[in-house]
Design a binder for these strands. Sequence first.
DNA 1: ATCGGATATCGATGGCTGTCAATATCGACG
DNA 2: CGTCGATATTGACAGCCATCGATATCCGAT
Lengths: 128, 128
Amino acid sequence: MSKNSTPQPLALLDSPVDATAIAAMQACCPDLFGEAISEEEAVVAARVFKALADPARVRLLSMIAQADQQEACVCDLIEPVGLAQPTVSHHLKVLLDAGLVERERRGSWAYYRLKPDALLAIRRALGA
Amino acid sequence: MSKNSTPQPLALLDSPVDATAIAAMQACCPDLFGEAISEEEAVVAARVFKALADPARVRLLSMIAQADQQEACVCDLIEPVGLAQPTVSHHLKVLLDAGLVERERRGSWAYYRLKPDALLAIRRALGA
DNA sequence: ATCGGATATCGATGGCTGTCAATATCGACG
DNA sequence: CGTCGATATTGACAGCCATCGATATCCGAT
């Protein structure tokens, strides 16, 4: 029984086009556990949670949330989080692709700002 | 700079003792983004999100939430989720270890029930 | 006691991911 | 335009994980 496995190697997890994971979630998944959801909706939701599924990213998000104006320069995050600069850049990109933060270049520096709608969308998906 | 990497290969991610991830989160992380959090708190939170970071687990949780009494037998989940029985069992164990569901054996069957407090704890951690 | 169905565990395997050093890019400032 | 500081990208490597088949365990029924 159960011959219906998933032969395709997770092609669904690649970002479809340009939309962030949060944007896709807002578009498709109002309440994950209040109604039946499709495979695609589950993929979208899992992508958002995956962005939060690493201690470094949780800390980075928390530190950004703590900062003034809820935004922080990369250079101010490297030392507190205790990781190499490329690693921090990588994690911030994951958060960016998920739609949890937005980036703004100001001079030589890159500022990452919290997107408040994102956390709200997650809370609503978990059943407001 | 940034010579302080993490030499230990993620030993922190192993479950400390018996407490589920949700229990640990309820004990330590009232609001992840409302105050400064420690490395340990980030690890705990990431562990919960990791349990949700897979499409199969999101679907399973959603299906359990949909079911009567918010509980479902494993045998009723295998065919809808479209995965082999060992895989479903594995995912349910992950959700169980995270504290998102609880298990009850009734005869030959194993029933997994949603733990409502869990989703509430996550929502609160994301900023009530 | 045995059988059979339901569930869990084991072992293997391929893909994904976090990490860093090295390097490239980008923007300001001489 | 060349340099320098800040950030991003690349390439490599190690560990983790989703998945399955095979097998073990658990439990009711015969």
